[in-house]
């Protein structure tokens, strides 16, 4: 086995040892969050079915806001955050439905930046301040 093959093998082993995204725990912001993101109007909306944005084989996509945190083990990590997620819808009893936030977060078939039509994002909303944990509504 030559040096190139050995290097390739080591690279592959290293890459496969990288932890998967499953270590982030996510839920829809509309389900509520520890920091009251859900009190902001844009985060209180349930995930929506986007028939204009199709995934593989014409599958509708779901878009919405998620709130993720790590599994709180090991070394100190970044604080929980919200983000915009998109994924393929799933068919339940003949109807298209949005999956749970974790499934949506982990869906590698849909990439937000590749969507032909990206719904309004929180980036358009100004940062806000509030008392008692409630968030001032941002413009969309």
């Amino acid at each position: 086995m030559n040096r190139f093959a050995i290097t390739s093998l080591i690279t592959l082993i290293t890459l496969f040892s990288i932890p998967s995204q499953a270590e982030l725990i996510c839920k829809w912001t509309a389900q509520g969050t520890d920091v009251n993101f859900a009190s902001d109007e844009i985060f209180s909306k349930k995930p929506t079915l986007e028939k204009e944005n199709c995934g593989t084989n014409g599958t509708p996509t779901c878009t919405g806001y998620i709130y993720c945190s790590d599994n709180k083990t090991g070394t100190p990590a970044a604080p929980p955050e919200a983000g915009f997620a998109a994924c393929e819808a799933v068919k339940v009893e003949g109807k298209w439905r949005c999956p749970d936030a974790q499934t949506c977060h982990d869906d590698v078939n849909v990439i937000v930046s590749n969507l032909p039509r990206i719904p309004s994002k929180a980036a358009a909303a100004p940062a806000g301040a509030s008392d008692g944990g409630a968030v001032r509504e941002g413009t969309k």
Partner: peptide, 8 residues
């Protein structure tokens, strides 16, 4: 995954 690059 289907997540935007923005971190909120």
């Amino acid at each position: 995954a289907g997540v935007s690059p923005g971190h909120i």
